[in-house]
Design a protein around this nucleic acid. Sequence first.
DNA 1: CGCTGTCCTTACCATTTGGTAGGTTGTGCG
DNA 2: CGCACAACCTACCAAATGGTAAGGACAGCG
Lengths: 189, 189
Amino acid sequence: MIRSARRLFAAHGYAGASIAAISQDLGLTKQALLHHFGSKDRLYALAVEQTAREILQILFDAMEEGRPPEDQVEAFFAALFSHLFDDATSAQLLYRELTDQALKPQERAGSSLETVLESLVATVQATEKWQEAGVQGALAVVVQLLGAATLHFTAQGTLQRMFGRTTYQGACDQFSDVFADLVSRTLRD
Amino acid sequence: MIRSARRLFAAHGYAGASIAAISQDLGLTKQALLHHFGSKDRLYALAVEQTAREILQILFDAMEEGRPPEDQVEAFFAALFSHLFDDATSAQLLYRELTDQALKPQERAGSSLETVLESLVATVQATEKWQEAGVQGALAVVVQLLGAATLHFTAQGTLQRMFGRTTYQGACDQFSDVFADLVSRTLRD
DNA sequence: CGCTGTCCTTACCATTTGGTAGGTTGTGCG
DNA sequence: CGCACAACCTACCAAATGGTAAGGACAGCG
């Protein structure tokens, strides 16, 4: 159920995906959904939180103790990239939450999405190159890298339409290397 | 009128911004809007096209003949960045169109947004570093750079909320330099 | 058997959506 | 003046929105 909700919220946004559409996608009535989740807000919150938690897990896995922070961040972005490669809807959904802020304030507090960003900023701040740039510098770096990693997936449909599916596929393959290079160049000097 | 529509479509997306809300923002009734633009679709199309045309103009200005393509791309991204700095809604609106594909197919054909992407890809493909990577490689680079440039602006609200307005402002200042460096490193070797 | 609770349904509801029809006001122009 | 036309309004409409109420089907359990 949440998987279906994630797909539709990712594709059409909070406002664009009605609970009727989601339930129809599942072959149920919308009241079945409301029965399980109480309200559209709560379903959306669950979808976002679940998605963010997956990313958070990837982050934790990449944060092995003892390794230099540069390696940790690199490992995270590599793992994130391959995760999004398998499931672009994650990128789409989280990006939408970043831009729409459709989550209720109380549901936002202490969410996994916040934790991911804060941990990333802290780790970047621990790198040699950026430790003197303060929180602001690290935040700039993190946002930049995340943006570079995600547009690719969030704009999937448009890019395929504009350039053709085969060209897009080819770009996908190259993207991984180009991106890894970018992360490395940004974190080291 | 279109300015107001751009603001609201950028903030809430096509589905999330009703013509009633836009007209209320203007102090009119929604029928006044419908009178001028015929339908919500057409108003949205105008807002997107106008915004994309601004970006296209920035691109043309950066594409002076005779300069090396690396410089052209760098100049474009620098100008784009300062434009978005003044008007983040442009980034938000165009990003939404990239992800939502809310434009009708007939209105998409030959739009400024397509022209921008295609011209960028062609120019990147003309650079020394990427001329052997084909359309795919150039597309990957363009998407990556655009993503890096825009997340910052599209997620403005969330970032301000999470890290505080002052921290966000500080990151803004640093972002410009970090980004210029990133573009340069990506285009040259 | 009967009781309870979960799952899911049909039947509603008030509100909002995009859009139409028709009328009113004002302005420019012959 | 009289005519046309744009701008804008009120009044409506069918459809879709999120959500409530009430009940049926069915399982587990005493």
